[in-house]
Amino acid sequence: MTIAESPARSYGPTPLTLDELVELTRATAEEVRAGLHEIHFDAEHRWSVRLRSDTYADIWLITWTPDQSTTLHDHAGSLGALTVVDGVLTERVWRVAAGGAGLHDRALVAGRGVAFPVGYVHDVVNTAAAPAVSVHAYSPPLTAMSYYRVDEAGALRRTHSVLTHDPEPDVPTLSEVPTGPRPAHPDRGLEDR
């Protein structure tokens, strides 16, 4: 399934469903496993590259060395999904349940895909000793992200929001969507932000 194959719908912020986004990340994860996309690990910053983009969605490849994490965040008005290609990631999800609200951890192992609706707040971290690789899709493409902390009373508090077109604000990423073969050297084409 490619991004453009999804039929257009006349409702919601995107024509894609959460299930379709998970399928996009799973199909792209298979491409990564087959060696069709080059990956790079950077112990200082999570490395990412946008693999595909159109008016409906962006698909990103992200690598994680041990102890790398996002910060507790949402994806503003975008739906999202991720599939772990290799390794294990821990997702910390903010949930409101009958017993109260709080962060709940779940392990995301290679091959596991998860979806997140608008308003979903989570953090992803590599707590394992080995690197991990994941594929992420956002629809509509990201335009903003908000960041959060849990305060002393256990309540979720937004700390700030940023306008961004990629899931890794403030870290080096490829500036353009690749249209042909990837460069032989993984650092070629990276920009410092």
Rank of each mutant, 00 (worst) to 15 (best):
F41Y: 09
A144L: 10
R149M: 10
D187C: 14
A110D: 10
T17C: 09
V124L: 14
L163S: 14
H122W: 05
S161K: 06
V121H: 05
S78P: 04
A34N: 09
E44V: 13
L142D: 03
Y147T: 06
T65F: 02
T173L: 09
H104E: 15
L16G: 05
V109N: 06
H165Q: 14
S6W: 11
A115T: 14
R188A: 12
V84N: 00
T179G: 13
D105S: 08
R33C: 03
M145K: 04
P178D: 00
T17H: 04
T127K: 09
G35M: 04
I3D: 00
S10D: 15
I59T: 06
S146F: 08
D86W: 07
R182C: 09
A97T: 14
V121I: 11
P167K: 01
R106C: 11
Y56L: 13
E168V: 13
P183K: 06
E31F: 00
D123C: 10
P186V: 00
Y120P: 04
T71L: 13
H45F: 15
A115L: 11
E176W: 08
V114Y: 02
E30R: 00
E20D: 08
L24M: 13
T71C: 09
R188P: 00
T179R: 14
L103K: 02
Y148L: 07
T55G: 12
T55P: 14
H160W: 14
V171C: 10
V162G: 07
P169G: 02
W64S: 04
L79V: 07
A184E: 15
G102E: 03
D187G: 06
D19M: 09
A76S: 06
D42I: 12
P131Y: 05
A155M: 12
V88E: 02
G180A: 11
T2E: 13
G80K: 01
R33E: 06
W47H: 02
R112G: 12
L79Y: 02
D42P: 01
E5P: 08
A34M: 06
S6I: 11
I59M: 03
E31A: 08
H104V: 12
A101P: 08
H40Q: 09
W47F: 03
W47Q: 01
R26E: 10
W47L: 07
E44G: 08
T143D: 13
L72T: 02
V88P: 02
W60S: 02
L18W: 02
L72I: 03
E5D: 15
Y147K: 06
N126R: 07
V125F: 10
W47A: 01
L51E: 02
V84D: 01
V118M: 07
R193L: 04
S6A: 15
G111M: 01
V85Q: 00
S78W: 00
S6Q: 15
P172M: 09
G80Y: 00
D54F: 05
H160E: 13
G180H: 12
M1C: 13
D19V: 15
V118E: 05
L163K: 14
G189Q: 02
H122K: 10
G87C: 03
R92M: 14
S139R: 05
S146P: 11
L156K: 01
S69P: 10
T90A: 13
A130V: 10
A97N: 15
E5T: 11
T14H: 04
P186N: 07
G77F: 05
E23I: 04
